[in-house]
């Protein structure tokens, strides 16, 4: 398993750059990945989504939620989700939240 350093911490990642051990995640790591993804500084609305995803995934053996699950679970609208995480929110949210690629099509 490959490793890489993010925000001063060495974490395990897969070929696509997703963290493979969600427990290694920290808020500093999230901020660093968000910067890499071109999202910039994370605001409260980002954190609401990130924290919800982590909580949701934790109860489901760290299975990453899909976009539809995020919008129904957080009451964040689709438009808002695509504005907060532009150009590919599915993978961006998962990466920043330290989760794997979402498993599901909706």
């Amino acid at each position: 398993m490959a490793t890489r350093e993010i925000a001063g911490k060495t974490v395990q990642v897969n070929d696509e750059g997703f963290m493979t051990d969600p427990v290694e995640w920290s808020e500093e790591i999230a901020a660093a990945i968000a910067a890499e993804e071109g999202i910039g500084a994370l605001i409260d609305a980002h954190w609401t989504i990130i924290r919800w995803c982590r909580k949701e995934a934790e109860g489901k053996k760290w299975k990453s939620p899909t976009l539809r699950q995020i919008t129904t679970g957080t009451e964040v609208s689709t438009k808002e989700l695509f504005t907060l995480f532009p150009k590919g929110p599915a993978k961006k949210v998962a990466r920043i939240a330290g989760l794997g690629k979402p498993e599901g099509c909706v």
């Binding site: 899909t66 976009l67 599915a90 993978k91 099509c105």
Partner: peptide, 12 residues
């Protein structure tokens, strides 16, 4: 609808 939504989610 399914593929289009998946594509948007991946930034396509």
């Amino acid at each position: 609808l399914i593929m289009g939504w998946g594509a948007l989610g991946d930034g396509i």
